[in-house]
Design a protein around this nucleic acid. Sequence first.
DNA 1: ATGTAGACTGTAGTCGACC
DNA 2: GGGTCGACTACAGTCTACA
Lengths: 72, 72
Amino acid sequence: MEIKSKIGNRIKELREIKQMSQKDLAYSADLDRSYIASVENGKRNISIVNIEKIAVALGVSLKEFFNKQEFN
Amino acid sequence: MEIKSKIGNRIKELREIKQMSQKDLAYSADLDRSYIASVENGKRNISIVNIEKIAVALGVSLKEFFNKQEFN
DNA sequence: ATGTAGACTGTAGTCGACC
DNA sequence: GGGTCGACTACAGTCTACA
């Protein structure tokens, strides 16, 4: 699977665990909701600054964010 | 420290362990050498696709790449 | 072998709207 | 609540060149 999709899946997974809507996450991470949607669907090549913003908004470190089998 | 600098440091660290020059890495990752230089110096907001390319070129998974204290 | 600069092209990321 | 489209602006990433 492509890295963009893996990232999208991971964000969605963590967002649902935290019981946040895309709108909630977009607000917390100071990003656009339509953008969050396209990232979750693996359509965007997100930058590290925004990955970090999202990780912070989801309450995980980057280390935790990437600490998943699919990133091995 | 800013995330862009952390990424740059991590790339440089791994690159030196592998005893590769910036040119070697740029070639393996199919990126521009001047771009690698600016990323290592924390001046660029690199995208996930290019982080993955670099990780592959350095022989580590994304999980390993981010498995460092500074990403906690 | 690395840093940086300038000019260029492509795309990340914003915003409003509608389904 | 989430997906997507279109128009826009900002910046990622390329390439050449010189220190």
